[in-house]
């Protein structure tokens, strides 16, 4: 464990808590893409299957359980409890155009052709594009609530911090995982446009308005 990965995990944790807070306090999931949340739940479900087969540390296991449970809770809140506030008209990204190519790629490019490893690879690839429905929805609605912007900033920062973690681990531990690094860079690059808007607008107290 290193400081970059720890701050990254905390940023990820903060993002999930911010999203749950937003939904609970506003009793609404307006402006949130349910499709992205389903993809995140799929990412955790397919990545953390080793929860039962390999023990890394208490921290690792506790965080995995937390991520799986909160992602399922988020999907439940969006599609059941606060369903009336779910903006399905703007959440129209065709996720099958993400899941199918990612699934195929996971079969072709992986570290080991075993079920757990292919699922892990699928999860890494899927996570790198899972935010697209959310970014697409924001470009359609043309704006985002401030707390949703904070959620996205924390979520985008987590993987950016993981890139620093991989640099650290490469130089100090000789650890290098090309699949995770490439997917992590793609994932972080997708947030760049949003990061720019967040830093130039939200941090000055303005709302984010995307060119619709």
């Amino acid at each position: 464990m290193n400081i970059f990965r720890l701050i990254g995990d905390m940023s990820h944790l903060l993002a999930i808590i911010l999203l749950l807070l937003k939904m609970w306090k506003t009793r609404s999931c307006a402006g949130i893409s349910g499709k992205s949340q389903i993809l995140f739940a799929l990412v955790f479900a397919s990545r953390y299957l080793d929860l039962f087969t390999s023990f890394v540390s208490v921290y690792n296991s506790v965080m995995k359980i937390f991520f799986i449970s909160t992602s399922l809770l988020t999907v439940y809140l969006m599609y059941f409890k606060f369903r009336a506030t779910y903006d399905s008209n703007h959440d129209t990204f065709r996720v099958e155009f993400l899941v199918i190519p990612v699934g195929g790629l996971a079969f072709l490019v992986n570290h080991e052709f075993s079920p757990l490893e292919i699922l892990w690879t699928f999860s890494i690839y899927l996570e790198s594009v899972a935010i697209l429905p959310q970014l697409f929805m924001m470009s359609k609605t043309g704006e985002a609530e401030t707390i949703t912007s904070h959620y996205l900033f924390a979520l985008g920062s987590y993987r950016a911090l993981y890139i620093l973690n991989w640099v650290y681990r490469y130089y100090f531990e000789g650890f290098f995982d090309l699949i995770a690094v490439v997917a992590g860079c793609v994932q972080t690059i997708l947030y760049c446009d949003f990061f720019y808007l967040y830093i130039t607008k939200v941090l000055k107290g303005k709302r984010i308005t995307l060119p619709a």
């Binding site: 890394v56 690792n60 991520f67 570290h111 080991e112 993981y162 290098f176």
Partner: peptide, 10 residues
């Protein structure tokens, strides 16, 4: 190259 077979990151 990867050190250990198992993935120790979240």
């Amino acid at each position: 190259e990867k050190l250990e077979k198992e993935h120790d990151e979240l």
